[in-house]
């Protein structure tokens, strides 16, 4: 599925990127794994359509599944050791705590350019190839085509 005109325009302006527009109906979908997120904010900075934003809240469940050997993983492991019950949802984060914020992803604004995938250092954002048949109608679909090669 070809890119939207706007998506093609933006991709063309990113340095070192050659848009591969395929005509055989293969596209990509952005997939996020919040437990791998370290809160660095690079995806927010590079997204050209403001589809990704830093929220003012944090979901503690992200810590539990963070990989061992990382700061968040160690924090999650420590939290699990003293927790009395499962985390009961997200909460507001004080202003000066910048790297513990849940990232919000607005699919309807996503262009499928894949810049976030390239920027993410931990693989919390990846692109998943989908078949043309899965995509169906473009408008209102909850999967969006992406130009990152499969």
């Amino acid at each position: 599925m070809p890119l939207t005109a706007r998506g093609r325009e933006i991709l063309g302006s990113l340095p070192g990127v050659a848009p591969t527009v395929t005509t055989d109906g293969i596209g990509c979908e952005i997939v996020r794994r919040e437990e791998l997120c370290i809160g660095c904010g690079r995806c927010v900075k590079v997204c050209p359509s403001a589809a990704i934003a830093e929220s003012s809240r944090f979901d503690p469940a992200q810590l539990y599944d963070a990989p061992a050997g990382t700061t968040r993983g160690a924090l999650g492991a420590a939290l699990r050791r003293i927790a009395r019950h499962e985390p009961d949802g997200s909460f507001e984060v004080p202003e000066r705590v910048r790297t513990f914020r849940t990232i919000e992803f607005d699919r309807t604004r996503c262009l499928g350019c894949g810049a976030c995938t390239r920027a993410c250092p931990t693989g919390a954002v990846t692109a998943r190839p989908v078949n043309a048949g899965e995509i169906g109608g473009f408008a209102g679909a909850d999967r969006v085509p992406c130009a990152v090669p499969a």
Binding site: F58, L79, R84, H85, E86, F91, V93, P94, R96
Partner: peptide, 20 residues
Amino acid sequence: NLSALDRIAFVQRLLESVGV
């Protein structure tokens, strides 16, 4: 110290969310 105050507030909320 202001960063520390905010981080303590964050940890307090984290604890609360798991019943501590």
